[in-house]
């Protein structure tokens, strides 16, 4: 009671000024959190479990959304071509997409940071080898390389397209291109740090290189990595959707957003618009929101871009 009376000042403006984010970023952040949150809680909030093959009936296929004239109130956003509830499929699909996107960013960042540190710290041959590999990889477009990797994986392991292994393959296929950005950024920052006195001092007192890299240099080169990771998350989700759209992603019984759009795409000419539209909208909003947040983070953490106050 006392606290309620003694805090007349509204909370939100102070929060906003403290973060210093414009309103568009706040909205984008909230939307991204909402979609990610819903996706993570898919098992609890989805009306049906679309991954359970016994849960849907073919006879319910292609029902339009509930708010249209022929809609069925059981299926808020309608059903897909198999009779799956589209809303549930989207929630589970978003979870798959985000998990793969997040996984790819994690793998790429880890790999990129380690290789960047090694290249920047040791220089010379180590640097040359790592950076030439990076150059070769950069000369391939992301999608092409990802298609190549998943294609080879499918040819080598017959089980690669199953629900258990497809995400792993997808994560590797995306990460194999994305690590280069981290490696280049970290390498540049590491070279700058390595020349500084505190690193020299650490060398002089005989600390092992691994300790210098991890305990001394790494904390000082991490902030750009976080920014790249945010922006890459959106790109990774999009790459996953593209691969699934092209049919080399998640299996049809365990759809991701991209798989749902691919299924829906077959029907856009037949008047069954909702199967493609809703997953596509979700993907667009998610990617846009994460990108806006990522852009703002970049501006904020990059002192050169920061406006003087």
């Amino acid at each position: 009671m006392k606290t309620a009376a003694s805090s007349p000042r509204p909370m939100s403006p102070s929060l906003m000024t403290r973060i210093g984010a414009p309103i568009s970023v706040m909205i984008a952040g909230a939307l991204a959190l909402l979609i990610v949150g819903c996706a993570l809680m898919a098992s609890w909030i989805a009306p049906y479990d679309p991954t359970d093959l016994a849960s849907f009936e073919l006879i319910n296929a292609e029902l339009p959304p509930a708010f249209t004239a022929e809609g069925d109130s059981h299926f808020l956003l309608g059903t897909d071509n198999q009779g799956r509830d589209l809303l549930s499929a989207m929630l589970y699909g978003a979870r798959v997409s985000i998990a793969i996107g997040g996984g790819a960013v994690l793998v790429a960042a880890t790999l990129g940071v380690i290789l960047g540190l090694l290249a920047g710290y040791f220089g010379g041959k180590v640097d040359a080898v790592i950076m030439r590999i990076a150059d070769v990889i950069l000369s391939f477009p992301t999608i092409l390389l990802a298609l190549l990797v998943s294609g080879i994986a499918r040819a080598l392991f017959p089980g690669a397209a199953t629900a258990e292994w497809a995400p792993v393959i997808l994560i590797c296929a995306i990460a194999i291109h994305e690590w280069v950005q981290y490696a280049r950024t970290v390498r540049a920052a590491t070279m700058v740090e390595t020349a500084k006195d505190y690193v020299r001092a650490a060398k002089v007192i005989g600390l092992p290189p691994s300790r210098i890299m991890l305990r001394h240099i790494l904390p000082n080169v991490m902030s750009p990595v976080l920014v790249i990771a945010t922006i890459n998350l959106a790109a990774a989700v999009l790459t996953e959707a593209t691969l699934s759209f092209l049919g080399v992603g998640m299996p049809p019984t365990y759809p991701s957003l991209g798989t749902l759009i691919r299924i829906g795409n077959e029907f856009v000419f037949s008047g069954i618009w909702w199967i493609a539209l809703f997953p596509a909208l979700t993907l667009v909003i998610l990617v846009l929101a994460v990108n806006i947040v990522g852009d703002w983070l970049r501006d904020r953490f990059n002192p050169k871009l920061r406006v003087k106050r």
């Binding site: 093959l53 016994a54 849907f56 198999q82 499918r154 397209a161 199953t162 299996p251 049809p252 019984t253």
Partner: peptide, 22 residues
């Protein structure tokens, strides 16, 4: 589509069907 439908129908009688299309 035919195969997803069949996998779903078999699962309903207890035949757990792992579907792979390529």
């Amino acid at each position: 589509q035919i195969c997803v439908a069949i996998a779903s129908m078999w699962t309903k009688v207890g035949i757990q069907t792992e579907l792979q299309t390529e």
